[in-house]
Write a protein that binds this DNA or RNA. Structure first.
Lengths: 341, 341
DNA sequence: AAAATACTTGAAAACGTTATCATATGCCGT
DNA sequence: ACGGCATATGATAACGTTTTCAAGTATTTT
C-alpha cells in the first residue's frame, strides 16, 4: 500500500505534476478551477507530499536538531530539561518545525551526531545545550556558517546567537538575599564545574560576598555534580566544620531537595538551622517542605526564545540582538526566612 | 560552502559514484585498495552522505516519530516524561536511530503531525504515548500497516505492539499495602479520567478494597488532573468530611507532593494523620519530607523497551510477544509507615 | 589453452519533488 | 484585426543517493 505520489494526483486531476506542485506551494498564478480539481484529487487519493523528496530539491527540512550533551543523564533527570523542551516545542510548533533529537554518550558521539545532522543536511539549524568552555562543535558550525544557537553563553565569540540568563547577577541576587537575612557565613553548592553557567554563578556569589565584606571560605564551596546524590558526603563534611555556614546558595532545585533531606537526617532543619536559596523554580520547589526559595530563570522562555532566534536566523531575518538575556527573579519562600527570628 | 557529494568523492578517488556508494554501505565485493582510496577522498573532502537523498531511494529514514499528546503540558511538567524519553533515546542511540518530536495542541494538530510523519515517509515508525480509549490514530496506523508502538495498553486490539505496566495489579498492591498498615478508610486520587492507565489503576484499587471487605466511598475518589495544583480544593473537601480517609493511593508522585503540602498547611501531617502511597518513583519522591512510598513502574525501561519493540517491528523481526509488561515494585518509605504506632 | 567461473567495477535508471524555461491561450491597446 | 503582453499550464532537468544490469578482468577448471 505505497502512498500516492504527485504524479498520481496529476493524472487523476488531468493536469501535469508541475501544476500539482504549484497548488501545493500556493503559487499565485493558478486558476481557482484547477486548484479545486487538484485538491479534490489529493483528497480522494489521500495524498501527502514526500518530505524527503521535497527537502532534497528545496534544501529545507523544516526540522531543527537538538543534540543532547554527553552529560544528558544528569540533565534529564532534572525537570529543567522537560521544561526547556516544552518551550522549544511550543515555538517550533507555531512555526511548523519539528525537533530531531539525538543523544550522545561521549564527545565522539556528540560530534558524530552533529555531523549526521548538519552535513547530512538533515536539519536546517541546530540547538546546542549547556555549552562547555570552548566547545569544538561551536567552532565547527561557525566555520561552516551553519545556523545554530546556544542555550547558554558563548565564551569565545560574541557574534554567535545565544539565549541565556544573567547568571552572574542571578547568583549575586540570591547571595544578597541571604546576606540581607543576616547571614555572614554562606556556602555555595555548584553544578558541573566545566559548564559555563557554573562559572558565572560562582562569580556572582563571590561578588556579593566581597561587596559585603564577608568571607568566602574555600571549605564552604561544595563542587557537586548536578545530580542530587553526589553532594551528600561533601555536605556532611562542610557541616562538621568548626565554623560552618548558616546558609547555602545552591545551583539547582533538585540538589536543594537532596540537601534539605540530608540536613534533616543530620538533625538540622531548614530554615531554622540552615537557610537555602537555589535555582530554577521547578514546580516541586513550591511543594517542598519547607517551600524552597529559588531564582526563577524562566526556563520555558529560555527554550521558546532559543528556537525563535534559530528560526529567525534560518529565515535570513536580520538579527539585531544576537545575545538574548532572559530576566530572572528571586522567589522568596520558606527555606530562606525564619518566621520568628 | 555547499558540501561535497558522492560524485566529488568519486572523481577525486578516480572511481564511479556506484563504487563510492558501495564503500559507504560496506558492500563485500570491493577491493581493499579501492576502499582505501575512496575513504581517503571522503576524508579530504569532509564528505558526509546526504540523508534526504539516501532516504528517498532506500525508503528508510533511521528516524522514529514521537508525537506528544495534546495533554503534553501536563505530561511535560512531570519528570515522568524526561525519564521515559531518556530510555527511548538510549535504545534509539544504540540502534543508530534518531527521534523526531512534534507537539500538538489539539486532536486536529495531533493527526496532522502523524500524517506529516507517516504519509510523508519521514519516519520509519511511530511511538504513541498515553493512549486514550479508542484512539482514531491507532485505527489509522493499523489500516496503513505502518509500524507503531503504544506506550500503554491497547483497549481495542490485541495485536498492536505495546509496552505497559500491569497498572491494575500495581494499584492493587499499593492499596493492599495500606490495608496491611491497618487502614480501613482509603481514598484515591486519580489522573486524567480518559486515560487508559487511570481506568486500570482505579480498577486495581477497587479490587483490593473489595477483597478486604472495605468500603469504597465515592466521596473519597478525587478525580484530579495530573497537574498537582488542580487537586487542592478537592482534597480539602474530602478532608472535611465527617468520615474522612486515613490514607490515600495517589496516581502520581507530583500530585502526592502537592497533597502532602496541602495537608501540612491544613495542620495534618504525613504519615501520622494520613498515609500515602503514590506512583512512579521519580527521583524526588525519595528526597521528599517525609520520603514518599511509591510504586516504581520502571519508567526508563518503559521507554527503552518501547523503542526496542518498534525497531524490531521495523526490521521485520518476528515478534513473539506483542504486548510487553514491565514489572513494578512497591517501595515503602516514610509516607506510609508510622514509626511508633 | 579454451571455456567457465568468480570477482570487481561502471552506466544508467530510479526515488518524488521543485524550479526553470518554454508554450499555448486569452486579452488589451492601437 | 494584429502584434504584444499577461496568465495559466506543461516538459524537462535537476537534487544526491541506491540499485540493477551489464561488462571487463582475473582466476580457475578441464
Amino acid at each position: 500500500m505505497s502512498s500516492a505520489t504527485i504524479k498520481d494526483v496529476a493524472k487523476l486531476a488531468g493536469v501535469s505534476p508541475s501544476t500539482v506542485s504549484r497548488v501545493l506551494s500556493q503559487h499565485p498564478k493558478i486558476s481557482p478551477a484547477t486548484v479545486r480539481k487538484v485538491k479534490e484529487a489529493m483528497e480522494t487519493l489521500g495524498y501527502h507530499p514526500n518530505i524527503m523528496a521535497k527537502s532534497l530539491v528545496s534544501k529545507s527540512t523544516q526540522t531543527l536538531g537538538l543534540v543532547l550533551p554527553r552529560s544528558a543523564e544528569e540533565l534529564f533527570i532534572n525537570p529543567f530539561f522537560s521544561e526547556v523542551l516544552r518551550g522549544m516545542l511550543a515555538y517550533a510548533n507555531t512555526a511548523k518545525y519539528d525537533l530531531l533529537m539525538s543523544s550522545a554518550h561521549s564527545q565522539q558521539e556528540e560530534l558524530e551526531a552533529v555531523n549526521r545532522m548538519v552535513m547530512g543536511r538533515r536539519v536546517d539549524g541546530i540547538i546546542l545545550m549547556a555549552p562547555r568552555k570552548s566547545d569544538p562543535i561551536v567552532d565547527r558550525l561557525r566555520e561552516h556558517d551553519f545556523p545554530f544557537v546556544l542555550l547558554g553563553r558563548s565564551v569565545d565569540y560574541d557574534d554567535v546567537l545565544c539565549v541565556n540568563n544573567d547568571n552572574r547577577k542571578a547568583a549575586y541576587d540570591a547571595t544578597n538575599h541571604l546576606i540581607e537575612q543576616g547571614h555572614t557565613r554562606i556556602g555555595y553548592v555548584s553544578g558541573p564545574p566545566d559548564l559555563v553557567v557554573s562559572e558565572d554563578r560562582l562569580a556572582g556569589y563571590r561578588e556579593a560576598l566581597a561587596e559585603a565584606n564577608l568571607p568566602c571560605n574555600r571549605e564552604w564551596l561544595v563542587g557537586t555534580e548536578i545530580l542530587e546524590k553526589s553532594g551528600f558526603h561533601a555536605i556532611s563534611l562542610v557541616m562538621n566544620l568548626p565554623e560552618r555556614p548558616t546558609a547555602f546558595v545552591i545551583a539547582d532545585d533538585v540538589v536543594a531537595f537532596g540537601l534539605i533531606r540530608e540536613l534533616y537526617q543530620a538533625g538540622l532543619s531548614v530554615p531554622q538551622d540552615v537557610s537555602i536559596v537555589s535555582f530554577n523554580n521547578i514546580v516541586m520547589s513550591e511543594l517542598s517542605n519547607p517551600p524552597i526559595s529559588t531564582i526563577d530563570i524562566g526556563i520555558y522562555h529560555l527554550g521558546y526564545l532559543t528556537v525563535q532566534q534559530l528560526i529567525r536566523k534560518i529565515s535570513g531575518e536580520a538579527i539585531t540582538q544576537p545575545q538574548i538575556t532572559v530576566p530572572h527573579r528571586l522567589i522568596v519562600r520558606g527555606s530562606s526566612v525564619r518566621s520568628h527570628k
